[in-house]
């Protein structure tokens, strides 16, 4: 059998080796991103309506908090999706490690008595 494959290309999955446009020498004319490269990443939380929690909706880059809120307004609330916006610089988010999930959540695993369905009550008991 021939050791030969035709790659399968989906929309949005064209190999980079098939260069598009007018290729220019790597690194010659393209100056690095000025300024924008230094903008930090922010996480955006939106309250969709009064009375509900703020919910994480995505992230964006901005020079400062005010700009992050304005950009979040433009990107995430164009269709009245929110009444309040929180932004926080992504570097301040601390996350649990998925590799430790087993031990981290293990203590909750065997405590079925924390759920109301654990308790068997006679049908005559109403409103409980």
């Amino acid at each position: 059998m021939m050791n030969f494959q035709i790659r399968k290309f989906y929309y949005g999955d064209i190999p980079d080796s098939n260069s598009g446009g007018d290729p220019i020498d790597a690194g010659s004319e393209i100056p690095p991103l000025g300024g924008g490269g230094a903008w930090p990443l922010w996480e955006v939380f939106i309250r969709s309506k009064q009375g509900l929690d703020h919910k994480h909706v995505g992230s964006l880059k901005a020079a400062d908090a005010q700009m992050a809120i304005e950009n979040a307004r433009d990107v995430y609330t164009r269709r009245m999706e929110g009444v309040s916006i929180w932004v926080v610089e992504s570097k301040y988010i601390h996350a649990s490690n998925p590799d430790e999930a087993e031990s981290l959540y293990d203590p909750a695993n065997d405590k079925v008595y924390r759920h109301p369905t654990f308790y068997d009550l006679p049908d005559e008991v109403k409103h409980m």
Partner: peptide, 11 residues
């Protein structure tokens, strides 16, 4: 930069 250098593709 990859887009601008022609290295990356788009539809």
């Amino acid at each position: 930069n990859d887009l601008h250098s022609g290295k990356a593709k788009y539809s």
